[in-house]
């Protein structure tokens, strides 16, 4: 498979009153055509900034980028605003977390769906309407003609998220970013939406980046997983490999904190004590050192580099799990 999106040494900083805030600190990632990648991390780990930066959505003057973003053979880091814009919709598209605030509350679903079709694909009104109906059918919305005339507030959270997906898919993107697409939804609806995204990805031969804080969500729906912590990728592997052979203590802690229905409950839940380090500071050692149950002296002073095992499993730890210590 060929590379579709490739990030190298991507670094994003923001100017804040407290100084430079480094949200993404040197990320290298590659997404192949047709592949689905899960990006997992806690709030503040930089996962959302990473996906927005990949699409060129960080246009505010306080955001600074270094490193490169190459999409479909085109270097977006040196491209003009117009060239970046041209990749939106047809190249890359995004589904945002909160479907209520991402949709315009005073415009009907039909006009929001048709916008991309008219502007990006130059369709006539009639063509756009026909395609809109097809799109709503694609995302399994019952009675699509009626749905086109509704306003977002007349739809449930799950239906709104389906509309968001339809809008994102309108111009046949090659890569779909889904940023916490199910966090605001019930578990039953979450299961429906995740299944829908998986099915659509296969039907339309898209690549997908699924951004979430929940390892449970990505387990059944991705080929590979990148775990982020404090702006860095700390573990990267094929999904099966990651779950059977966790190397990074942070990933292990994240896995343990998920309440499991398939295991007996012990009453108390495992937690990750403490919290993410201050993003305006750069500590010398491993960013996870202060919360790591296996911390050693070396972790406090030397920043671990990303190591790569033979099977492509990457991890950023001086004392990885699964090795006698």
């Amino acid at each position: 498979m060929s590379s579709l999106l490739s990030l190298s040494n991507l670094r994003i900083t923001f100017d804040t009153p407290r100084g430079q805030l480094a949200a993404v600190r040197g990320v290298d990632l590659e997404i192949l055509a047709g592949e689905s990648l899960g990006v997992v991390g806690e709030s503040g780990s930089g996962k959302t900034v990473l996906s927005r930066a990949s699409m060129g959505l960080l246009t505010m003057s306080t955001a600074h980028r270094s490193g490169t973003v190459v999409f479909d053979g085109q270097d977006l880091s040196t491209a003009s605003r117009e060239a970046v814009r041209d990749t939106w919709g047809t190249g890359m598209a995004m589904i945002f977390q909160d479907p209520m605030t991402a949709l315009n509350p005073v415009r009907r679903i039909g006009s929001q769906l048709a916008e991309g079709l008219r502007v990006r694909l130059g369709m006539s009104k009639k063509e756009a309407k026909k395609r809109s109906i097809e799109l709503l059918q694609l995302v399994r919305i019952p009675d699509p003609e009626k749905a086109l005339r509704k306003f977002p507030n007349q739809l449930s959270g799950g239906m709104r998220q389906r509309v968001m997906i339809a809008i994102a898919l309108a111009c046949n993107p090659k890569l779909l970013f889904a940023d916490e697409p199910t966090t605001a939804l019930d578990v039953t609806v979450q299961a429906q939406i995740l299944q829908l995204l998986s099915d659509l990805r296969k039907e339309l031969h898209m690549s997908m980046v699924l951004v979430t804080h929940d390892l449970g969500v990505v387990a059944g729906h991705t080929d590979k997983i990148a775990v982020m912590y404090a702006g860095e990728v700390v573990e990267y592997a094929e999904t099966k490999e990651l779950f059977t052979n966790v190397r990074m203590p942070y990933t292990e802690a994240l896995l343990n904190s998920i309440p499991r229905l398939d295991q007996k409950s012990s009453g108390r839940m495992a937690v990750i004590e403490g919290r993410l380090p201050d993003p305006t500071q750069q500590e010398p050692g491993c960013a996870f050192a202060s919360r790591c149950p296996y911390v050693q002296e070396k972790c406090q002073v030397e920043h671990p580099e990303l190591q790569k095992a033979d099977n492509g499993h990457e991890f950023r730890c001086h004392f990885p799990l699964g090795v006698a210590r």
Binding site: T188, A191, Q192, G220, K240, T244, L261, D262
Partner: peptide, 24 residues
């Protein structure tokens, strides 16, 4: 049963028979 089986399991090797409720 449907609620129980909608909870995502963080283990890709476990292929449970999942009942996904249709509709709302």
């Amino acid at each position: 049963y449907a609620l129980v089986s909608s909870v995502p399991i963080p283990d890709p090797s476990k292929k449970v028979s999942r009942v996904i409720l249709e509709g709302e």
